[in-house]
């Protein structure tokens, strides 16, 4: 299993990846945006350079966004711990970054 194009999002010291085909656009966050730092206990305030990653019907605000165009192999989640939120891990320059489903991530309410 591979991921053809990924959007790497950075929130504080944490990183996660979104499938490029799930992201419709990257915009400047507005007041209605939801900061992804909430997932990691970093609060609701995002930095001035934050970006809003928008998917159809969902969007999330992260600190930085990077588009990774190469095809990345995805390490699938074991069956016993598989969830709809994290679909697997990709190896980005030697580091494993979780692949997050934005639709399921948006449904998670802190």
């Amino acid at each position: 299993m591979t991921l053809d194009g990924a959007v790497l999002c950075q929130v504080g010291p944490f990183r996660f990846a979104l499938a490029a085909h799930d992201v419709s656009s990257i915009e400047v966050p507005d007041a209605r945006g939801v900061y992804a730092g909430r997932w990691f206990g970093l609060g609701d305030a995002w930095p001035q350079t934050a970006r809003s990653v928008r998917a159809p019907g969902h969007h999330v605000v992260v600190d930085t966004v990077e588009v990774h165009g190469a095809t990345l192999p995805v390490l699938a989640m074991p069956a016993m711990v598989a969830s709809h939120l994290v679909t697997g891990f990709v190896d980005v320059q030697g580091a494993l970054v979780p692949v997050v489903s934005l639709a399921h991530a948006a449904e998670r309410r802190p």
């Binding site: 053809d4 194009g5 490029a20 656009s25 990257i26 970006r51 966004v65 588009v67 165009g69």
Partner: peptide, 9 residues
């Protein structure tokens, strides 16, 4: 960034 995203898509 969006153009790159679209290009990849």
């Amino acid at each position: 960034l969006n153009a790159e995203l679209e290009g990849h898509k």
